[in-house]
Design a protein around this nucleic acid. Structure first.
Length: 556
RNA sequence: GCGGAUAUGGUGUAGUGGUAACAUAGGAGGUUUCCAACCUCUUGUCGCGGGUUCGACUCCCGCUAUCCGCACCA
C-alpha cells in the first residue's frame, strides 16, 4: 500500500476544479455538503462511464434497461425494509449535548438492542439509565428516529402522501417485475439495469466523491431460478488471478473459476458477475493491480444476503468499496409480495408431471354447513384427512377440542387424479450495484499522471478511450494562410459524427495546446500545418506516446 | 453530531485596522515550421451574515463550506 500523498490529492483536486471536471455544487451560494457538480468536461465523462456500463451489461443478451422515478412512495420503501433499516434511534445528552445511538448505549443491558422498537428502547433506556460516554451524566432526551432517507410529500395538502427520494435504484426493478417477466417471455434468467441518482441524507459526508448525499448509481438485478444449477463460462478469465479477501479463508490469489469451484465464492452467478465487474473496471481505465474483492462477514452482511462481495479499488483514500455484488435470495420480491398481495413469481414446469391421487372424503357443503355452522371449516379440514375406508357416522375431535359427530349425509366421497405440471416460485436475485461516482473518482485518480518534463510539472490524464470526455482536439499550426479555416472545417466534420466530441483550439503555442489537451485526457490531437494545405493530410498525435503520424483528412 | 485547523483572482499562494500582492491560468494582438518559448495590451480576488471601529480582508460572534481525528455509514 502506498502512503497517502495529500499534496498529490490537492493538485489533482485543483486540476479537476480548474478544468471543469468536478466542482463543489452551488458554490456561489456558499456550497452544499455532499453535493458535487460534474462540469463541462466531467459531465461528458460521467455520461461515457454510464454508457460504457450500460453497453457492458446489454452485451449479455438477456438484459433490459429501465428507468424508474427517484420519488418513491413510503409504502414501497417500507416493504423493502428501508424505513426500518435506514433509521437510527438517537438520543441526546441533556448535559453535554452529545448525540448517541440508543442501541449502542444499551448494548450491555440487552443481548441485541438493535432489534428493539423505539418504544422498547425508550423503556429500556429509562430503566437502565446508562451514563453518557462523553460526560458520564445520566440525563437523556427522548429517543428520536433519524432516517437516512430524504423525505418528501407526494402531492399537496390533505391528499399528499409521504414519500422518500430513493436510497437505491433497485426497488424500481423489483416493483417492475411483472412487466419485466412478461417482456422476457416468462423465461428466466434475465436481468434489468438502471442508471440513475440515489439519495442518502448522510450525517457527515466526507472525502469528496466517496460519500455523497446525492450520488450516481448503476444497478443490475439478475433474476434466476434457484432450482437450476447455474453454469457460467469462466474461460475468459482463466489466466487472470485476482485478489480475494474471503470471510473464512482470508486473503487469497486465484482465478474466479478456482474460487467458485472451491466454494470461496458460494454462488457461480455471483462469481460470474464479479468477473464481469472486473472486466468493466478494466475497460474504463481502473488499474487492475489496484482491484480486490472482499467478502462480507456473516454479521456484516445485510439481512437478506446469502453471499456478498465488494469490489474495492485502491486510490488516494486507501481501499474504497465501489461495487457490491450480492446474492439477495428471494428477499426483495417476497417482501413486495407480502406487502401488496400481488404475485411476483415465475413459473417452472416439472420435468415430469406430478400425479396426485386423492382418495378420501370431503364435506357436502349444503348439509354440513347448516349442521356445523361456525365449526364447518374445521370439520372440513378434519374430514379430508380421514382415510378412504372410514365409515359414518364418525366421531371427530377437532383441534379446538370440541367433539362432533359427522353423519353420512354430511360427507361425500372425494376421488380424483390430478396432474401437476409445474409450480410458481419466487425468483432469486443476484445484484451487482455500482457506485458510479466512486468509480469515476478512481478513474481520475489512476489516470492522473504528473510527469516531469524538463524539470517542470506536466499533467496527463491517461483516460481510457471508452470514457475520455473529448475525443479529438483540432489545432491549426498557425491561424493564417488558410490553416485556421481548414482546421475549423475538420473540427466541424468531426463534431457532426455521432458520439464524437471535438474541440478547436488556436490560442497559444502549439505546445501549450497539446498540454491543455493532455490535462483533460484527449487521446488524439489533429494538427493542420502548411503541408495540409497542399495534400489534405494532417498530423495525428497520440496522447500517451507523443508520436505523430500523417493521415489523410478523409481517414479521420 | 463532537473536537481541532482553515477560508484572499479560474488555480496555487503572500500580506496589512486605512479596500490588496506574486506566480500561474484566461482574452486580444504580434512573433514562431509541432510539445506549457517570447513581446505588448488586458480581464479578474478577501466565503456569507452580524458586531466592535471614524474606518474591518485583517479583531470578535454566528453561519456555511473544506481538511484532520472521533462517532456514524457501507
Amino acid at each position: 500500500m502506498t502512503e497517502p500523498d495529500t499534496s498529490r490529492l490537492e493538485r489533482l483536486s485543483g486540476v479537476l476544479k480548474r478544468r471543469g471536471i468536478l466542482l463543489p455544487a452551488f458554490e456561489i451560494h456558499g456550497g452544499a455538503k455532499g453535493l458535487y457538480d460534474f462540469g463541462p468536461v466531467g459531465g461528458r465523462l460521467r455520461n461515457r462511464v454510464n454508457q460504457t456500463w450500460i453497453n457492458h451489461w446489454l452485451s449479455l443478451g438477456n438484459i433490459v434497461e429501465i428507468s424508474c422515478p427517484t420519488v418513491t412512495p413510503y409504502a414501497v420503501l417500507e416493504a423493502s425494509g428501508h424505513v426500518g433499516e435506514f433509521s437510527d434511534f438517537m438520543t441526546i445528552c441533556n448535559s453535554c449535548e452529545e448525540a448517541s445511538r440508543a442501541d449502542t448505549l444499551l448494548e450491555s443491558y440487552h443481548p441485541n438492542p438493535d432489534s428493539l422498537t423505539k418504544a422498547e428502547l425508550q423503556s429500556l433506556l429509562d430503566q437502565s439509565q446508562p451514563p453518557c460516554p462523553a460526560c458520564q451524566a445520566v440525563d437523556w432526551s427522548e429517543i428520536t428516529a433519524q432516517n437516512l432517507m430524504f423525505n418528501t410529500t407526494i402531492g399537496a395538502g390533505a391528499s399528499g402522501r409521504p414519500g422518500f427520494l430513493r436510497p437505491e435504484t433497485a426497488q424500481g426493478m423489483f416493483t417492475s417485475f411483472p412487466a419485466l417477466y412478461r417482456h422476457n417471455r416468462e423465461r428466466l434468467p434475465f436481468g434489468a439495469i438502471q442508471v440513475g441518482k440515489g439519495y442518502r441524507n448522510e450525517i457527515s459526508p466526507r472525502q469528496g466523491m466517496i460519500r455523497l448525499r446525492e450520488f450516481n448509481m448503476a444497478e443490475l438485478e439478475y433474476f434466476i431460478n434457484p432450482h437450476v444449477e447455474p453454469s457460467h463460462d469462466f474461460s475468459p478469465w482463466q489466466d487472470s488471478k485476482v485478489s480475494l479477501i474471503a470471510d473464512r479463508e482470508g486473503e487469497v490469489e486465484m482465478s474466479f473459476k478456482e474460487a467458485v469451484e472451491s466454494n470461496i465464492i458460494r454462488h457461480a452467478t455471483v462469481g460470474y458477475f464479479m468477473a464481469k465487474t472486473y472486466d468493466f473496471l478494466e475497460k474504463v481505465g481502473i488499474d487492475t493491480q489496484r482491484i480486490r474483492f472482499r467478502q462480507h462477514e456473516s454479521d456484516e452482511m445485510a439481512h437478506y444476503a446469502t453471499d456478498c462481495w465488494d469490489a474495492e479499488i485502491h486510490g488516494s483514500y486507501g481501499w474504497v468499496e465501489c461495487v457490491g455484488i450480492a446474492h439477495r435470495g428471494c428477499y426483495d420480491l417476497e417482501s413486495h409480495e407480502k406487502a401488496t398481495g400481488k404475485s411476483l413469481r415465475a413459473r417452472r414446469e416439472f420435468s415430469e408431471p406430478q400425479i396426485i391421487e386423492t382418495d378420501g372424503w370431503t364435506i357436502l357443503g349444503a348439509k354440513a354447513g347448516p349442521a356445523f355452522r361456525a365449526l364447518a371449516g374445521a370439520v372440513k379440514t378434519a374430514v379430508e384427512l380421514l382415510p378412504a375406508e372410514t365409515s359414518f357416522p364418525h366421531q371427530l375431535t377437532l383441534p379446538s377440542g370440541e367433539v362432533v359427530t359427522v353423519e353420512e349425509e354430511h360427507v361425500k366421497r372425494d376421488q380424483r387424479t390430478e396432474s401437476v405440471t409445474g409450480e410458481w416460485y419466487i425468483p432469486h436475485v443476484v445484484e451487482p450495484a455500482f457506485g458510479i461516482d466512486r468509480i469515476i473518482w478512481h478513474i481520475l485518480d489512476h489516470a492522473y499522471d504528473e510527469e516531469g518534463k524538463d524539470g517542470e510539472e506536466y499533467t496527463i490524464m491517461h483516460l481510457s478511450t471508452h470514457v475520455a470526455p473529448v475525443d479529438f482536439c483540432v489545432f491549426p499550426l498557425f491561424e493564417k494562410d488558410g490553416m485556421g479555416e481548414l482546421a475549423q472545417s475538420i473540427h466541424a466534420v468531426l463534431c457532426s459524427k455521432p458520439n464524437v466530441v471535438s474541440m478547436y483550439d488556436s490560442s497559444g503555442s502549439i505546445g501549450r495546446r497539446y498540454a491543455r489537451a493532455d490535462e483533460i485526457g484527449v487521446p488524439k490531437c489533429v494538427t493542420v500545418d502548411h503541408q495540409s494545405l497542399e495534400d489534405q493530410t494532417v498530423t495525428v498525435r497520440d496522447r500517451d506516446s507523443g508520436e505523430q503520424h500523417r493521415v489523410h483528412i478523409d481517414a479521420l
